[in-house]
């Protein structure tokens, strides 16, 4: 749960949108919330915050597309 809150905060910081997190299953790529630049920013921040290594090619868009999925992947990599 704590992870998810942290992730939502990161997404809010990167995108500047306050309503992120209302729907944890919303597709962040299809809705255009995350573009390539924002994606890399989220990746780098995740690495710093959680101390995990996420190489760019690991970032399969289908596996990282929602807040819930990101949270699951972070848990796996931690």
């Amino acid at each position: 749960m704590e992870n998810t809150e942290k992730i939502v905060d990161i997404l809010k910081d990167v995108t500047g949108l306050d309503n992120i997190g209302e729907d944890a299953d919303q597709d962040l790529f299809a809705t255009g919330i995350l573009d390539s630049m924002a994606t890399v920013e989220v990746l780098v921040t995740l690495q710093d915050e959680f101390g995990i290594e996420v190489p760019v090619s690991e970032f399969d868009r289908s596996q990282w597309s929602t807040i819930n999925k990101i949270s699951d992947r972070v848990k796996e990599l931690e």
């Binding site: 390539s36 630049m37 994606t39 890399v40 920013e41 780098v44 690495q47 760019v56 090619s57």
Partner: peptide
């Protein structure tokens, strides 16, 4: 190009 050049370059610059 996005995945193997652009994002990697941004990733490097940011890190």
């Amino acid at each position: 190009f996005r995945d193997f050049i652009y994002m990697r370059l941004i990733f490097m610059m940011m890190k």
